[in-house]
C-alpha cells in the first residue's frame, strides 16, 4: 500500500465507446482527408474544371461522413435521442463544438459534391431537380470551397480532440493524437479518393493530379509514422500510468492489430508495393489498388487500436 486508497472496480460495463465509434472516427477522417487533399490540389493548381479526382473526393467525402453519422447515431443508447445533441449545446464540450462543425460541414460537403458532380447529375433522371439549385448557388462556389477546406481539416482534428479529452487513458490522452488523426486522415482519404477516381471516373493512372498525389503521399505517411513514434516514446519513458499504457504495444491481441495492421499493412504495405517490386508491377493497376487498400485498412486498424487498446489500459 502506497499510503493512498484506490479502487479498481467501475460502474460502467466494460468499455464505454465500442467499435462503432472507431468506425465513425475512421469515416470522419476519410471524409475530411479526401476533401482537403482534393481542394489543396484545386487551389494549388488553380483548377477551374471538375477534375476526376475532385469528383471522386467529393463523392467519397459525402458518403463516408453520412455513414459516419449513421455509426454515431446507432451507438447512442437510444438512437431516438439524437435530436437532443442538436438542440442542447455546451460550449465547454469538445463534442458540442464538433457537432457545430459537422452541422456546417455536412451540408457544405453535399453542396461541393453537387458542384463537382454536375455532369453526372445531369445524366441521372431522379437527381435532375438539383440542377436549378446548382445554377443558383454557382456564385458562392469559391467561398464554399474555402470554408469546407477549413472545416474538413477541423473535422479530422476534431476526431482526435474528441477522444484525447479522456484523461483516464494515457494512450488516448496525448497532445499528438489530433495531429496523428489529421495526417492519417489525409493519407487514407487521398488513397480512397484516388482509387475511386481511377475506378469510377476513369482518371489516368499517370495523370498530373496523380503525380502530385504520389509526391505528397510519402511525406504525409512519414509524418504519420513520426507522430506514432512520438506517442510510443512518450509512453515508454513516461510515468507509471504511461508505462501501463505502453503494454498495449507489446501484449494482448491489440498489439497484434497494431504491428500487423497498422505497421505491417498500413505502412509497410504501400512502401513494399511501390519500392520493393519491379517497375512493371509497381506501376500497374493492381499495385495501385492494393497499396490504396493497404493505406485505408491501416487507418481503420489504427482507429480500432487507439480506441480499444487505449480504453483497455486505463489508469
Amino acid at each position: 500500500m502506497d499510503g493512498t486508497l484506490e479502487f479498481t472496480m467501475g460502474l460502467s460495463d466494460g468499455i464505454a465507446w465500442p467499435w462503432p465509434i472507431a468506425v465513425y472516427l475512421f469515416f470522419a477522417g476519410i471524409s475530411g482527408g479526401a476533401l482537403s487533399v482534393a481542394l489543396f490540389i484545386r487551389f494549388y493548381k488553380k483548377q477551374v474544371t471538375n477534375t476526376a479526382f475532385l469528383k471522386a473526393s467529393a463523392l467519397v467525402s459525402f458518403i463516408t461522413i453520412s455513414l459516419g453519422m449513421l455509426c454515431l447515431v446507432l451507438d447512442l443508447t437510444n438512437p431516438l435521442f439524437f435530436w437532443r445533441i442538436l438542440v442542447y449545446y455546451n460550449l465547454n464540450s469538445v463534442m458540442s463544438i464538433g457537432v457545430i462543425a459537422l452541422t456546417a460541414y455536412i451540408p457544405l460537403v453535399a453542396l461541393i459534391a453537387m458542384f463537382a458532380l454536375e455532369e453526372e447529375i445531369k445524366r441521372i433522371a431522379i437527381l435532375r431537380p438539383l440542377l436549378p439549385i446548382i445554377d443558383k448557388l454557382r456564385g458562392i462556389r469559391r467561398p464554399c470551397e474555402v470554408a469546407v477546406l477549413l472545416l474538413a481539416l477541423s473535422v479530422c482534428a476534431y476526431t482526435g480532440f474528441l477522444i484525447s479529452a479522456l484523461i483516464r487513458f494515457p494512450l488516448i490522452n496525448t497532445a499528438v493524437l489530433p495531429a496523428l488523426f489529421v495526417a492519417s486522415g489525409l493519407s487514407a482519404g487521398a488513397a480512397a479518393a484516388k482509387m475511386l477516381a481511377v475506378g469510377m471516373f476513369k482518371e489516368d493512372l499517370h495523370s498530373q493530379d496523380m503525380k502530385i498525389l504520389h509526391g505528397a503521399e510519402w511525406p504525409i505517411m512519414f509524418a504519420e509514422a513520426l507522430f506514432l513514434f512520438m506517442i510510443i516514446m512518450s509512453l515508454m519513458t513516461g510515468n507509471a500510468g504511461a508505462q501501463t499504457a505502453f503494454e498495449a504495444f507489446h501484449s494482448g491481441s491489440w498489439a497484434m492489430v497494431f504491428w500487423l495492421g497498422v505497421v505491417g499493412v498500413g505502412f509497410m504495405g504501400p512502401v513494399l508495393l511501390n519500392f520493393a517490386t519491379g517497375k512493371r508491377f509497381s506501376h500497374s493497376a493492381q499495385a495501385f489498388y492494393l497499396s490504396g487498400l493497404c493505406a485505408v485498412s491501416g487507418m481503420m486498424c489504427l482507429r480500432m487500436f487507439i480506441l480499444y487498446a487505449g480504453q483497455n489500459f486505463a489508469i
Binding site: F7, M9, G10, L11, S12, I15, A16, W17, D75, L76, T77, N78, F81, I85, S93, M95, I163, A165, L166, I167, R168, Q311, A314
Partner: peptide, 12 residues
C-alpha cells in the same frame, strides 16, 4: 446517451 461522460470519468 453518447456515453462521453462515462468514458471521461476518471473513476469509472
Amino acid at each position: 446517451g453518447c456515453k462521453y461522460c462515462i468514458a471521461a470519468c476518471p473513476y469509472d
